[in-house]
Simulated scan of single mutants.
Amino acid sequence: MTEQATRRTPGTPCWVSLMVHGLAATKQFYGGLFGWEYVPGPGQLGPYVRARLDGREVAGIGQLPPDRHLPTAWTTYLATDDADSTAELIRSCGGTVAVGPLDADDAGRVAICSDPLGAVFGIWQAAAHIGTRLTGVPGTPVWNELITRETSTVSKFYQVVFGHAAQAVVSADFDYLTLYAAGQPVCGLHGVGGALPHDRGAHWMTYFEVEDPDEAAACAAELGGHVVRSAHEGAGGRLATLADPEGAVFTVIRSDL
C-alpha cells in the first residue's frame, strides 16, 4: 500500500468525486462495495463527505441540490499549482470553466471544467487537502482514462494546459495515448470513434482497484447497482464496468500494473 506524497506534479490525477441526488444511499452502496468509511468535507456546495480506507482519504461524494436534475458521474481532478492560471489556459485552449475557481475552505482551490470535446474534469490546487492519500489497495483509484471520439485533437489540449507528454499505443485498431507527467504515466486517452455512448458523450472514467472483479460485479448488483460490462481480461488486468444505483459508471480492475 502507498500513501501519496504531499505535492502532486501538475496534470496528475489527484482526486475523484461524485455528486449524487441521494447521499445516504450512495454512501451505503460504496461502503458495501469498497469498505469505505466517511468523514465530513467542505460544505460550500452542499453536504459533502470524504471516503476513507485505513483512515486515509480516497474519494469524495457530495449531495446535489434538490432542484438540480443532473445525471451523476465520477469526476477526475487534475493537480495544478495555480487553479486560476490553469482555468484561464483552459479557456484560451477551447475548453470551458463551468464552476470556479473557488476556495474549498482551507482544503484548496477548485474549478470544474470541460475539454473542447465536452469531457468534464476538475482542477485542484491543494492546500490542507492534497487529494487521494492511499493507493495500491482494494477500494482505491488506480487509473483514470478519458473516453473520447478520437485522441489526436484532444490530446493537444491536455498537453498544452498541463504539460503532458503523450505516447501512443501502436495498434492498427486501437486509438490510445498514455499521458505522462514528470516522466511517469498518469492517465490515458482512449478514442472509441462511433462507439462513444450517445447518452454520455466524451467522459473521464475512474478505475478502482479490487481483488476480484467478478465478485465486485456481483456485489454491486446485490447492492442495487448494475453491470455495464461483465468481467473480462484487458491490457491492464481483469476488469468490469459497473454503475451505481444512480447510474454513475466506473470500472473495477485487478491491476497487473
Rank of each mutant, 00 (worst) to 15 (best):
G118K: 02
A126Q: 00
G131L: 01
A126I: 00
G139I: 03
P138N: 12
S155P: 09
A128W: 04
S155Q: 13
F157P: 01
K156D: 15
T153F: 15
S152W: 15
S152N: 14
A126Y: 00
N144L: 10
P141G: 09
T140G: 09
T153C: 14
V154I: 11
G139T: 02
V154F: 13
A127S: 12
E145Y: 04
F121K: 03
A127V: 06
S152I: 13
A126N: 00
T132N: 07
L117V: 14
T132C: 09
I130F: 15
L146Y: 05
L146N: 03
Q125V: 01
T135N: 14
I147T: 10
A126E: 01
T140V: 08
W143K: 05
T132P: 01
S155M: 15
V137F: 12
T148Y: 10
R133H: 12
V154H: 09
I123Q: 01
S155K: 13
H129G: 03
P141D: 08
R149A: 11
T148F: 11
T148A: 07
Q125W: 02
V120F: 12
T148W: 11
E145F: 03
G136V: 07
E145K: 06
I130K: 12
V142I: 12
L117Y: 15
T148N: 05
T153I: 15
F121L: 06
T135E: 15
T140R: 09
G136K: 10
L117T: 12
G136P: 03
T148G: 02
T135D: 11
L117H: 15
T132D: 05
V154L: 12
N144E: 12
P116E: 09
V120C: 03
P116S: 05
L146V: 02
H129S: 07
T132F: 02
L146M: 11
H129N: 10
R149V: 07
T151V: 07
F157R: 02
L134H: 04
F157Q: 04
I123F: 05
T132H: 03
L117M: 15
I130L: 13
P116A: 04
P116R: 06
P141E: 08
A126M: 00
V137A: 10
G131C: 02
P141A: 09
W143Y: 10
T148E: 08
P138K: 13
V120G: 01
T135M: 13
A128Q: 12
R149P: 01
T132W: 05
S152C: 13
T153P: 08
L146Q: 05
R133Q: 14
A128E: 10
T135S: 14
Q125D: 06
V154S: 03
T135C: 13
P141R: 07
I123S: 00
P138Q: 12
I147R: 08
I147V: 14
G122K: 02
N144A: 14
P141M: 07
K156Y: 15
P138L: 13
Q125T: 00
